[in-house]
Simulated scan of single mutants.
Amino acid sequence: MILVTGATGTIGRHLVATLNAEGAAVRAISRTAGAVDGVSVHPDVEGVLRSAAPGEIDALFLHPRVAGERAPEILALAAERGVRRAVVLSAMNVDDPLEEQPSRLAGDRNRELDRAAAASGLEWASLRASSFASNTIRAFAPQLRFGEVVRYPFRGFEESLIDERDVAEVAARALLGEADGILELTGPQSLTHGEQVATLAAVLSRPLRFEEVPPEAAAAQMTQRGMPAAFVEALMARYRRHLAGPQHPPTTVVEEILKRPARPFARFVAEHRERF
């Protein structure tokens, strides 16, 4: 039995489907009611752990937004209830200054969860993922609906975008005992913002053009679209910090664990073209 938190989210829904395909028994935790891939969703991870028979749940996937500041308590309860293994979702920028980690403004507590897993006494793996490929939908799609020019800051900022499905598939392998420790997960290539837009142009067959704008102008536009000002400020700080080289240089961890190359960004775009 594997307990998956954040089961209806970006990673969790793919993870539940992957584990189901593997024939694993899954219990799903999410604040969103209903079901995911045929599995009923429960709202309270600690309630499920307490109600399960000792040793019934073998492994736990813990999302940083679900755990929050309570990661040590949740993992301690898991150990008490006979859970053997914990796999946690973290991020490649976990050791950057906290004010340069935009996802903290959305509730992620990557650093706290990463450290709690290592100190839990359980078998553990931490998925330190690079930026998700789907972030480009939020960054670029609103402009693509109205024209062929993408206005965005820091043309030369470079990162190795990862397809969320690759993160989920690595998580499944770790939950099934095939990977341990800190796993730095990236896509197969490092792309600048300008190169990401060039990839969109090639895959979507559109004459897109990247136009670099000052960070202050970009930040104002983002906040006008409803993004929290603190999130935007942290995002700009992250871009500035890593202009000297790629924030997430490609690793081979995904390929080593899954025995195939990580999905490239161009494939992600092709398979999600309607969202752009």
Score class of each variant (00 low, 15 high):
15 L>S: 01
15 L>Q: 02
16 V>M: 05
16 V>S: 01
16 V>D: 00
17 A>H: 09
18 T>A: 15
18 T>N: 09
18 T>S: 12
18 T>W: 07
19 L>H: 03
19 L>R: 04
20 N>R: 11
20 N>Q: 13
21 A>E: 13
23 G>L: 05
23 G>Y: 04
24 A>R: 09
24 A>M: 07
25 A>W: 12
25 A>H: 11
25 A>I: 14
26 V>H: 03
26 V>I: 07
27 R>I: 07
27 R>K: 14
28 A>F: 00
29 I>Y: 03
29 I>H: 06
29 I>T: 05
30 S>V: 09
30 S>Q: 11
32 T>A: 14
32 T>M: 13
32 T>W: 12
33 A>Y: 12
33 A>T: 15
33 A>G: 15
33 A>K: 11
34 G>E: 07
34 G>Y: 08
35 A>D: 14
35 A>R: 07
36 V>R: 01
36 V>H: 00
36 V>Q: 02
36 V>W: 01
36 V>G: 01
37 D>A: 15
38 G>S: 09
39 V>N: 08
40 S>E: 15
40 S>D: 15
40 S>T: 15
40 S>R: 14
41 V>S: 06
41 V>R: 04
41 V>K: 05
41 V>A: 07
42 H>D: 15
42 H>K: 14
43 P>H: 11
44 D>Y: 08
45 V>M: 08
45 V>A: 14
45 V>Q: 06
45 V>F: 07
45 V>K: 02
45 V>G: 06
47 G>I: 11
47 G>D: 14
47 G>V: 08
48 V>D: 03
49 L>T: 04
49 L>R: 02
49 L>S: 02
50 R>N: 10
50 R>D: 09
51 S>F: 10
51 S>H: 10
52 A>F: 00
52 A>N: 04
53 A>V: 09
53 A>M: 08
55 G>T: 07
56 E>K: 03
56 E>H: 03
56 E>R: 04
56 E>T: 03
57 I>F: 05
58 D>Y: 00
58 D>I: 00
58 D>E: 11
60 L>R: 04
61 F>Y: 11
62 L>R: 00
62 L>K: 00
63 H>I: 10
63 H>G: 09
